[in-house]
């Protein structure tokens, strides 16, 4: 699927429609109104019947979804469909917004992350996050990557910390570009490098899951390609959930795709199936470009 060009990815369903294919063929398999199988064999995180409110406004309506081990799940949908809100629930970043309230159950390896006894600080060490806009701290490249290990007390010596920084930058594919200027400020890098620095910063604390909120939306095509490659490489070690605005990107990097619409999870399935054979009319309309 990774080699599929954008053109063909969209062209396929269009021809299917032309053949008179019914948009929702298999209503019986829908759970909570979601078409497709929300579960996976080996889940890392499981979300069940999640509702999110901003004040009185319902932003996420009854969403259930598994995120499997060592897979990349892409969340797509039009602006304001709730995909970012859902992503931010997975490491409780929504806690920082006063008026935001989350109902339902989200588990990380059987542990309910909204349990009142659960501590968000170690949770966020386990479930890291990469943001839409590259947001390196105005510190040196080294200090950016070392920030997480330092605050969490992961290392006991300088050399250990050096190792973690180098390893993280290596994994993020940035080491060769910055190894001679680790003391320079992180904000001086190019946009793509900054985003990879942010990824390095996230993996420096050895998370299990990495959440990515439109990580390429502020990058140019070449930098985007580089980050996408990186995501594919990281999949071997981490579980990744990525929100993206670009269907092509979802098609290129993910194994499963979830389509959100107006706060509901409309359809989920293997990426190949979703793009070649969408079963819900809304999904089909979206990926064929009728709206969004």
């Amino acid at each position: 699927m990774l080699s599929v060009t954008p053109d063909t990815a969209i062209a396929v369903p269009a021809s299917v429609i032309a053949a008179g294919f019914s948009p929702v063929a298999d209503e019986s398999r829908a759970i909570n109104g979601t078409v497709g199988d929300i579960t996976v064999a080996d889940p890392r995180m499981t979300a069940r019947n999640v509702n999110v409110y901003y004040g009185d406004k319902l932003a996420i309506n009854n969403v259930s979804l598994d995120i499997g081990k060592n897979e990349v799940v892409a969340m797509i949908g039009p602006s304001g469909c709730g995909k970012s809100t859902f992503l931010r629930c997975l490491n409780r970043m929504n806690d920082t917004i006063d008026i935001c309230r989350v109902e339902g159950e989200i588990r990380l390896d059987e542990q309910d992350i909204y349990d009142s006894s659960l501590d968000v600080v170690p949770l966020r060490a386990q479930v890291g996050m990469v943001f839409q806009k590259p947001n390196p701290f105005p510190k040196s490249i080294y200090d950016n990557v070392a920030y997480g290990p330092r605050i969490h007390g992961l290392t006991s010596s300088k050399s250990e910390l050096d190792d973690i920084v180098e390893e993280s930058l290596l994994k993020a594919g940035l080491w060769d570009e910055v190894k001679d200027r680790l003391d320079e400020t992180g904000t001086g890098l190019s946009g793509g490098q900054q985003q990879r620095l942010c990824i390095a910063r996230t993996i420096a604390v050895a998370p299990e899951v990495i959440l990515m909120d439109e990580p390429c939306s502020a990058l140019d095509p070449i930098a985007t390609a580089r980050v996408e490659e990186l995501i594919d490489e990281l999949r071997e070690q981490y579980t990744i959930a990525i929100v993206t605005h670009s269907m092509q990107q979802a098609a290129r990097v993910s194994q499963r795709t979830a389509y959100f619409h107006l706060g509901e999870l409309v359809e989920v399935g293997k990426t190949d199936d979703i793009f070649t054979n969408p079963r819900h009319r809304l999904t089909e309309d979206y990926i064929t470009g009728r709206f969004g």
């Binding site: 968000v120 600080v121 949770l123 966020r124 996050m129 943001f131 806009k133 996230t202 604390v205």
Partner: peptide, 17 residues
């Protein structure tokens, strides 16, 4: 910018950190 706070909190820093 809020993104700075998000980055730090998202990595598991406490508010005072």
């Amino acid at each position: 910018p809020q993104t700075m706070r998000d980055a730090s909190l998202g990595i598991g820093a406490t508010r005072s950190e």
